[in-house]
Write a protein that binds this DNA or RNA. Structure first.
Length: 886
RNA sequence: GGGCGCGUAGCUCAGCGGAAGAGCACCCGGCUUACAACCGGGGGGUCACAGGUUCGAACCCUGUCGUGCCCACCA
């Protein structure tokens, strides 16, 4: 389909400044309407699939999302152009604890709480929240230009995905890989839920180590209040100091209880007094010791961290109880060494920063050993590759030493644990097709699953698993998982474990590409407390989506953080405008492209030069993007576009275009062709401006579905043969640039106005390959023909390999001889130094004997070049007119 | 406590065994009709420090200092 908007373009359709707002939403909605982003599971094309790391419905997309989405969209768009059947599957995550916290905070502002509402009404409220913020997120993705398949949008709490959760839960349970047990878990006394190990962040806190006398033995602790729950004192079995006490009982102060002294390997005799108080209900190590020695567990705190042990401390908060217990002990004279400052790592809830309390409770766990091993093996044997590979050791270190995963959460928002308990202690796990037990005394588990349980199924569940859907067959395993290194363990590890388990060994993705974090201009983390957070939409409004995307992509070195700042987005905007104007120039001069080049015979050396460089650039871009090296690809394209194409080829094209005729015709075709290819190469990164320009230039349907220049994966004709390069013409262009630059430098130094035309002779040019381009050289260097009465007052000599070209100028006045002499003298100095270094190297038999051939050849060339420079510079110095006296 | 990474131009970063690079910033000169969101020219780095390996080191090895991150149930 060719819409009316596609036809009848004229040069005037392109304003002299690119205005993103006038094209972005128009093009985006058109792309969606035309179905370009919708995947066809029945197609014969090879698949390329990315499932989006689902953003949390908690809020809006931040710069990190903009970054991640830019990279994914770049991969997807390129593959689409290469002829793959591409699917970028969008969706969102219910994000259990995070979302619940946000909504609870909202309720608190309104003076109410989830307890006032009750479970059902609260969950209803969260769904309303999801409707509002989920909508915002989808709108932001459209602004970013994400070419996602909207017909396949998913949410982790959709019916289908919830069925997948029940399926895997039941399967794991039946295989003995999910179990329920009373264990010490990380408990957040504010969120009132269990946390998994990775939801706990450790910070160094200033604690106080207090030594307490338990009669014959002294123990040290940072958590004095827990002594109320002590049920033993442990010492090392080989510790002779305490050997006589092992097996005896001592009195626990303040409680009147008698507790045993036990011997346990875990105790480090060198630390503190070598004796440890044991509180099995409130410390993971102590719990282990308790298990080994059959000690009772005495819980002294409730779920909010309030002391429940009967006595004077009952009802105190844990942090009030600490000084209170200490004071009571001191009164009894039992504080034997005054407390001393002690820095140690304390766990905090990653969601609300509250100090985590180890707590004994009944929870559900996934037994991870075999699952984690499989996840490690998939990377070890190359089924899944991690990019950059330097991050692999981290992966192995983690999956090879992973604790069982606590999956139950005492929350209301999430997938409720599919387990029912009967009146007589029965326990039934309910799969998606099972009947839920009904009747007197049957009750479903009150808890929900850890949010990572459902997102761990994401690549499977979004494609329809456990059903054998067409999508699943076509697109699983997915091609790439692109995400931040910060959730390698939270999420990637879980998807690997579940994916491999559910499919009997098929990895969920062929590659994991890890990107860094977006930071501010000084490498600082973007965070609300620093006040350096920027909303991506602000920059999009200010500079356009393409500018933001380019800024992010060109900073994307694998696995490293990306600094961004307003200035850099501005620079990117400038570049987009540059590309805009280059195309505008071409279109205004009648350039078009139908993807074909003019007859090779008609091409000039300069035409071949730019085509050669274009081919090389395309090849580089392909190699870099295949390797997730976004920054390098951008750099390569950027420099070709601006420094070579715009600054030289476009400038050089002005003369033939002006002259008209066949030469102009060829130039127009080359301009059109190069831009056609260039816009295709740029499109995955900056989709909007390129699309608008390309339609103007080629009158084609859309870049989204145009062919990638270096060819389709399905074969067929290539637009650009990246193997066809012209080294001789590249050399010629380099020579031309050297001559022009040298003259410009001289002019600038002598203070000539850039536009001022100067009479000049170009000597020695005729015998070189540059001869046909004398007019172009004159045009770029602002040199006019030498007429009669030409009076040489200055000369610039440019050495080109063996030959040299002398440009003699009539400056109709005096030049600054002193300045020129100083410059030449300095250059001569450098050249002489070069000669010396090269001669020494080549005279060294060690070097000539051991260095590889190309290195020696290079050194010879370096010597010859420098020698030539010396001769040339000396003659130039001699030729300088005498300096005016006085 | 363990592990990983980084210290290269004023700033942010590439380069990771054969002549020190980019963007931005800076200095000089220009509205040369695609673009002043531009054009032309220029300055600027004992590649943290000290040893070592090598014909040759920013790049490999050792140590030191500085800095960042991840993991961690030693009271």
């Amino acid at each position: 389909m060719t819409s009316a908007a596609n036809s009848g373009f004229t040069a005037s359709d392109l304003p002299s400044v690119y205005a993103p707002a006038s094209v972005e939403s128009r093009l985006y909605e058109q792309w969606v309407e035309r179905g370009y982003f919708t995947a066809d599971a029945t197609s014969d094309k090879p698949p390329f699939c990315i499932v989006i790391p689902p953003p949390n419905v908690t809020g809006q997309l931040h710069m990190g999302h903009a970054f991640e989405h830019t990279l994914m969209d770049t991969l997807i768009r390129r593959r689409r152009m290469q002829g793959y059947e591409t699917l970028w599957l969008p969706g969102m995550d219910h994000a259990g604890i995070a979302t619940q916290n946000v909504v609870e905070r909202e309720l608190a502002k309104q003076g109410t709480s989830r307890y006032d509402l009750g479970r059902e009404a609260f969950v209803e409220r969260v769904w309303e929240w999801k409707a509002e913020y989920g909508g915002k997120i989808l709108g932001q993705m459209r602004r970013l230009g994400d070419s996602v398949d909207w017909s396949r949008e998913r949410f982790t709490m959709d019916a289908g995905l919830s069925a997948a959760v029940r399926t895997i839960f039941k399967r794991l349970y039946n295989d003995g890989l999910i179990y329920r047990a009373e264990r010490i878990i990380n408990w957040c006394p504010r969120c009132l839920t269990a946390l998994s190990d990775i939801e706990v962040e450790h910070f160094d806190d200033d604690g106080e180590l207090v030594s307490i006398s338990y009669g014959p033995i002294t123990v040290a602790t940072t958590r004095v209040e827990t002594m109320l729950g002590d049920t033993a004192v442990a010492v090392h079995p080989d510790d002779e100091r305490y050997a006589h006490l092992v097996g005896t009982e001592i009195e626990l102060p303040l409680t009147g209880r008698r507790i045993p002294v036990v011997a346990d390997e875990h105790v480090d005799p060198a630390f503190g007094t070598g004796a440890v108080k044991v509180t099995p209900a409130h410390d993971p190590n102590d719990f282990e010791i308790g298990q080994r020695h059959n000690l009772p567990s005495i819980t002294i705190m409730d779920e909010r961290g309030v002391i429940t042990a009967p006595g004077p401390f009952e009802g105190l908060d844990r942090f009030e109880a600490r000084p209170a217990v200490t004071a009571a002990l001191r009164e009894l004279g039992l504080i034997v060494a005054e407390k001393r400052p002690y820095v140690h790592a304390v766990g905090h809830c990653s969601r609300c920063d509250t100090v985590v309390e180890p707590r004994l409770s009944l929870q559900w766990f996934v037994k991870v050993e075999s699952l984690a091993k499989a996840a490690g093996d998939a990377v070890r044997d190359g089924r899944t590759r991690i990019h950059p590979a330097e991050l692999e050791p981290r992966w192995f270190a983690w999956v090879d030493d992973m604790h069982d995963w606590c999956i139950s959460r005492q929350l209301w928002w999430g997938h409720r644990i599919p387990v029912w308990y009967g009146p007589d202690g029965e326990l039934v796990v309910v799969g998606p097709d099972d009947e839920e037990p009904k009747g007197e005394g049957w009750k479903q588990d009150e808890d929900v699953l850890d949010t990572w349980f459902s997102s761990g199924l994401w690549p499977l569940s979004t494609l329809g698993w456990p059903d054998e859907t067409a999508d699943l067959k076509k697109f699983y395993p997915t091609s790439v998982l692109l995400t931040g290194y910060d959730i390698l363990f939270f999420w990637v590890a879980r998807m690997m474990m579940f994916g491999l388990y559910a499919t009997g060994g098929v990895q969920p993705f062929h590659a994991v590409a890890l990107h860094g974090m977006v930071r501010d201009a000084h490498g600082k983390k973007m965070s609300k407390s620093f006040g350096n957070v920027v909303d991506p939409l602000d920059w999009i409004d200010k500079y356009g989506t393409d500018a933001l995307r380019f800024t992010l992509a060109k900073g994307a070195n694998p696995g490293t953080d990306v600094p961004v700042s307003d200035e850099w987005v501005q620079g990117a905007r400038n570049f987009v405008n540059k590309l805009w104007n280059a195309t505008r120039f071409a279109v205004m001069n009648g350039a078009t492209s139908e993807g074909e080049l003019p007859n090779p015979q008609a091409l000039s050396a300069l035409d071949r030069w730019i085509l050669s460089r274009l081919a090389r650039t395309a090849a580089e871009v392909d190699a870099y993007l295949d390797d997730f090296q976004f920054a390098k690809a951008c750099d390569e394209l950027f420099h070709f576009t601006w420094d070579e194409f715009c600054d030289w080829y476009v400038e050089l094209s002005k003369l033939p275009l002006e002259r008209g005729g066949a030469e102009a015709d060829t130039t127009r075709r080359v301009l059109g062709y190069v831009l056609d290819v260039l816009l295709r190469l740029w499109h995955p990164i900056i989709p909007f401006a390129t699309e608008e320009l390309w339609r103007n230039l080629t009158h084609g349907e859309s870049l989204v579905v145009a062919a990638w220049p270096s060819g389709l994966v399905t074969g067929g004709e290539k637009l650009l043969d990246v193997e066809t390069v012209f080294p001789d013409d590249e050399k010629l262009a380099a020579d031309l640039r050297a001559v022009v630059t040298e003259v410009r430098r001289f002019r600038a130094e002598q203070g000539l106005r850039p536009a001022q035309r100067v009479p000049a002779r170009l000597e020695g040019l005729a015998s070189t390959a540059l001869a046909p381009f004398e007019n172009q050289i004159r045009s770029l260097a602002r040199l006019q023909e030498a007429e009669s009465g030409f009076n040489e007052t200055a000369g610039v000599v440019v050495g080109l390999g063996g030959r040299e070209i002398r440009v003699s100028l009539d400056l109709s006045g005096t030049i600054d001889v002193a300045k020129e002499r100083a410059r030449l003298a300095k250059a001569l100095d450098t050249a002489l130094n070069e000669v010396r270094i090269a001669e020494e190297k080549l005279a060294n038999p060690q070097f000539t004997g051991k260095a590889p051939r190309p290195v020696i050849d290079k050194m010879r060339a370096r010597l010859e070049g420098a020698q030539g420079d010396v001769v040339r510079l000396r003659s130039q110095l001699d030729a300088l007119p005498p300096e005016p006296s006085g």
